[in-house]
Design a protein around this nucleic acid. Structure first.
Lengths: 230, 230
DNA sequence: TATTATAACTAACACTTGTTAGATTAACAG
DNA sequence: CTGTTAATCTAACAAGTGTTAGTTATAATA
């Protein structure tokens, strides 16, 4: 019946399970494992994953400690053994998210020639989209919930976020041969980030292709370069 | 200190007042005024505006009946004289939003040659951006809160939203000379809508220019056409 | 096995939420 | 001025929130 099939038409919209990249999670989790027993570490990771899942699917408003606890067969109060507050839990989920996607992008860029600025930007687009839409609920929960999270949480995340933002500004600056902090680069950055991150609200893995979408974004990006002298 | 000034760095982020387009509001409100006294109508409109303001600035989770009531010097219970539920209030705010921006875009398109598909698309971009970032909190609250609103509210809005979506698909289809329902058009539509609507999260009227941003979007759009035969 | 630290539970707290019924005021008709 | 309708308030409700203190069960260590 719907002429255009919108994400919002799908009853299961937003309820897809992401591929379980357990290896990736492990790498992230263990990065900051200090003085925690194996069992505590496992529980903590389950809690983080459950929280990320709720945040990605239903938004920050639906992230309640009782919801999270139920997903890991615990009671709300038990979560305080692993996190000192709801804010800390949310911060940790989102911190894992940015750090994951930044690490993935940087690792992929290491395999690309430093002077091929077009291939570098395109690579970053692919990696970011895959993290967002396929591999990591930590990434998607961060992107989806950041604007609605309490001030304190946003404040805690400002440095990791800025690092990732600067990476993009530099990639774009190199690509269009302009200063990374000029208005031009910044506006293009906003266009690109908007196109990438809004996909969370419509992308349906059963109906859409990450690569197809990334290809259209590549086409768009080339225009910004072709408008300018090299 | 921040290298790149992000919206989230600004303490007043999201707290800008939109230009008071009272005339526009009147046109919208009165469109469905049936069997309501002048006083009731005024109160109802104040409630709608207050709700839209909260939704745009703080998101749907912060929209509480007590918050809204306080803004219009009422008590929470009094709102039930004008709306039968919180859902109905939210639905009405968002319905006004889509209908407003769709009407604005269509009226502007009436002034553009039907065969100048580039100018038509560019016009729509400008009108949409201005509604979103400057003139209407009903539009911005809709865009910002739609993904987080209860299912019932989204269901109520599906028709008005689809009408507006189809308008864009047709504009893009004409512009790149492709069927409005093909994958190509739909992906470009998602890119464009993402770039437009995400601006809600970073745009700061004291620091950015709507026209500058719209111009960058124009550059982007031309690439999609130039890639194809006419 | 006995002891101890770990990890979870119970049950409540103070508070906020949407919503409702009934009382109260304000505006207006006769 | 009187009576009636329209508009708002009061005060509570049941449900849900983050958080805490005290308790129990589990697991590791001696």
């Amino acid at each position: 019946m719907p002429v255009v099939r919108l994400a919002s038409d799908d009853p299961a919209w937003g309820n897809f399970e992401h591929g379980n990249c357990e290896l990736e999670k492990m790498r992230l989790y263990t990065a900051k494992t200090i003085g925690r027993s194996a069992k505590a570490e496992t529980s903590r990771n389950e809690i983080l994953s459950a929280a990320a899942n709720i945040m990605r699917r239903h938004g920050y408003a639906e992230l309640t400690l009782r919801n999270v606890a139920a997903k890991v067969n615990m009671k709300a109060g038990s979560l305080y053994y692993h996190f000192s507050s709801k804010d800390e839990l949310a911060t940790e989920v989102m911190r894992i998210g940015v750090e994951a996607v930044e690490r993935d992008v940087r690792e992929a860029l290491d395999q690309v020639s430093p002077i091929d600025s077009e291939q570098r930007l395109i690579t970053a687009v692919h990696i970011h989209l895959n993290a967002l839409l396929r591999s990591s609920e930590f990434v998607s929960s961060h992107i989806r919930c950041y604007p609605f999270v309490p001030d304190r949480v946003r404040f805690e995340l400002r440095e990791v976020r800025r690092r990732y933002d600067l990476l993009w500004l530099e990639l774009i600056g190199e690509f269009i041969n302009r200063p990374a902090r000029g208005d031009e680069v910044i506006y293009i950055w906003h266009i690109l980030v908007g196109a990438l991150n809004q996909s969370l609200e419509w992308f349906n893995p059963n109906r859409h292709s990450i690569d197809d979408y990334a290809r259209q974004i590549e086409i768009m990006l080339r225009q910004f370069r072709s408008q300018r002298p090299l």
